[in-house]
Computed example of a mutant assay.
Amino acid sequence: MGDPRFFPEPERLSVARIASITGAELRGDETRTVSGIAPLERAAATDLTFLENKSYTAAFRTTRAGACFVHPDLADQAPEGLVLLVSREPYRAFAHAAGTLFPSALRPSPVFGGVGIGPGAHVHPDARLEDGVTVEPGAVIGPRAEIGAGTLVGANAVIGADVRIGRDCTISAGASVTHALLGNRVIVHPGTRIGQDGFGFAMGPRGHLKVPQIGRVIIQDDVEIGANACIDRGANRDTIVGEGTKIDNLVQIAHNVVIGRHCIIVSQTGISGSTVLGDFVVLGGQVGTVGHIEIGSGAQVGAKGGVMNNVPPGARYGGFPAQPLRAWLKETAVLRRLAREQKGKGTPEGGDKEGDA
C-alpha cells in the first residue's frame, strides 16, 4: 500500500473494470473493489496483487488479497474466495492496472508544485516554451531552447542553448541537458547528464590531445532514463537512443552509440563509443562493451557480461569475455568440477596443494 503522503489514495476500482482494461478473464465476485496494491504475503482484502513466478506459489495459496492476476496454469491453486484475473502475462496486466490506480507514480512529481515559472528559475528571453510548461525554482533554460506543452523542468535542472524537448516530458531535479533533441514523453530522472563531451582524446607520448565532440544526442519518444545516468554527445555523428528504450540508474553511454527501439539497459552498464544495439536488446547489470561492435536485435547479455565482439541477433550471451550462454554455463560447470577434484586430492596431511605452495 502506498503512503498517502506521497501517493494519493485512489478511488476504489471494481475488478470488472480491471478485467475490462487489462483483458484478463475474471473469475469470482465481479462486484468486488480494490483500492491498493501489495505483494501476495502482505495484501489485504482491498488490495490487488499478482503471481507470475512459481517460486511464490506458497504465498499465493495463503494470500488474503481481494484480487490477483495469475497465469491460467496456476489458477487452480488459489485460496477460496480470492477473485482471479487470469492472464497469460500477469505482471504486465498488473502493471497496467496499478498505473490506473496510481497514475501519479508513473513519472516523477514536481518538487515545488504548480504550473508555470517558479520563483528563482531563469528562462532566457529567447527560449520558447509552449503553454503548460512547468519550470521549478532554480532551473535554468538557455537561449533558443524549445520546450513542449506539459513538460516539467525540475528544480535546479539545466537546459542548454538550442536544446529541443518535446511534449509531456519530465526533466527531473538536478538533471542537465545540452546539445540534445528529445522527443515526446521522455522521462529523465534526477541527476542525469545528457549531451556533455564524449570521452575523445588522441593519445600519444607528448600528451593526450582533446578531440572536439561536435555531434548531438537524439532521444526518441517514450524513452526513460534513470538517475545519474550519463549519455555523451557524439564526436562526429549523433548518439541516438531509440523510442521506448528504458535505461536504468548509473548507466554510461559513450559518444556515437546507437541504441535501437525498446531496449533495456540495466544499472551500471557501460557502452563504449560507436557501439550499435539493435531493437529489443537487453543488457543486464554491469555489462560492459568494447567500442565499435554491434549487438543484434533481440540479443540478451547476462549481468557482468564483458562483450568483446559482435553479438548475433537473438543470441543469449554471458560471462567474461561474453560468449553464447550455453557454452559459458558448460565452461563454468567444468571449471567447478575441476576445482572440486583438485580440492579433493589435497596433500597427505589434508592440506590444499595450492595453499601449501
Rank of each mutant, 00 (worst) to 15 (best):
P72C: 11
A339H: 10
T134P: 03
A155D: 08
Q286V: 02
L152M: 07
L48T: 09
D162C: 06
V217C: 06
G114K: 11
G204F: 12
Q300C: 09
G28Y: 09
Q323I: 15
K246S: 06
S104H: 05
V311C: 11
H71D: 14
Q77S: 13
R185L: 07
A322W: 06
A121P: 13
N53H: 04
T46M: 00
A58L: 12
A98L: 09
V86I: 15
R128Y: 01
V276F: 00
F60E: 09
T245H: 08
G138W: 04
V86H: 03
H122I: 14
H208L: 00
F94D: 04
G154E: 02
D131R: 13
T245D: 05
I187H: 03
G113S: 13
L209G: 06
R185A: 06
V83L: 10
F280L: 04
V86M: 02
R27K: 15
G273L: 04
N236A: 11
P143A: 09
M203E: 12
R340N: 11
I219T: 03
I240R: 05
I18D: 09
I231H: 08
I37F: 00
N310Q: 03
S272G: 11
Q77T: 13
A322G: 15
R61W: 03
G273R: 05
E41F: 01
R316F: 11
A173C: 10
T151G: 02
S109H: 12
T22M: 03
Q300K: 14
L82G: 08
F60R: 06
A65T: 07
G36W: 02
E25T: 15
G120N: 10
V251R: 01
A157R: 02
H71N: 05
I141F: 06
L51Q: 04
K54I: 08
P4G: 10
D352G: 09
A93W: 09
G226C: 07
A202V: 14
D356P: 01
L129Y: 04
R61T: 14
A139D: 12
K54Y: 03
Y56S: 05
P72M: 00
G296D: 07
L338C: 06
I159M: 02
L283N: 02
S274M: 10
T245K: 03
L13P: 07
C169E: 00
S14I: 10
A235Y: 05
A43Q: 07
F280K: 14
H189V: 05
N309V: 15
G346D: 10
G142W: 11
A43W: 06
G318H: 07
Q286L: 07
G215Q: 04
E294P: 05
T49R: 08
D3F: 10
T49H: 00
D168V: 07
A299W: 13
S104V: 15
P321D: 09
D238Q: 08
E25I: 13
V211A: 06
S55Q: 12
A157C: 04
V135A: 01
I147F: 04
T245G: 08
T192Q: 06
G160P: 11
A95C: 15
N236K: 06
V251D: 03
V257C: 00
A127C: 03
Y91T: 00
V287G: 02
R336Y: 04
L129M: 13
D238I: 09
L51V: 08
L181K: 13
